[in-house]
């Protein structure tokens, strides 16, 4: 008797689910290498709250979160508006050097290696 085919079944398409198994965290690791301090971010949102470009799409908190989850597609639009004014770094309660992270991220997004 042939065994039942256990690979058959249905799956809904287009899931919003974050798949940590497939997450690509290489960019995140490269950034951490350059700026290890930003691992202590607690996503409190102080940075975005004070951001000069905060109303124009700049969102470091979200960018960091997406980096951690390996979803890098939106990163450019989330960091392009940054003017490097430095207010975020002055208010971060965890002393993350946010400005340096964003600067390096902008460069890494343009340099392929």
């Amino acid at each position: 008797m042939k065994p039942a085919n256990d690979k058959w079944g249905f799956r809904a398409e287009g899931s919003e689910q974050i798949n940590l198994d497939k997450a690509d965290s290489s960019l995140y690791r490269r950034l951490l290498n350059r700026e290890p301090g930003f691992a202590v971010c607690l996503f409190c949102g102080s940075c975005r709250a004070t951001c000069t470009s905060g109303n124009e799409g700049m969102n470091f908190r979200l960018a960091h979160l997406l980096l951690q989850r390996g979803e890098t597609a939106r990163l450019k639009s989330l960091t392009d508006p940054c003017l490097l004014c430095g207010k975020c770094t002055l208010v971060c309660p965890r002393n993350v050097n946010i400005r340096a992270v964003v600067y390096n991220l902008k460069i890494m997004l343009h340099e392929p290696f």
């Binding site: 000069t52 470009s53 124009e56 003017l83 490097l84 004014c85 430095g86 600067y103």
Partner: peptide, 21 residues
């Protein structure tokens, strides 16, 4: 808020961004 003089961007080397600001 929401406006910047542009100098920090210029000092970082983001010249064309600074000029647009």
């Amino acid at each position: 808020g929401g406006i910047c003089c542009g100098r920090p961007a210029m000092q970082a080397g983001f010249r064309q961004q600074a000029e647009s600001i």
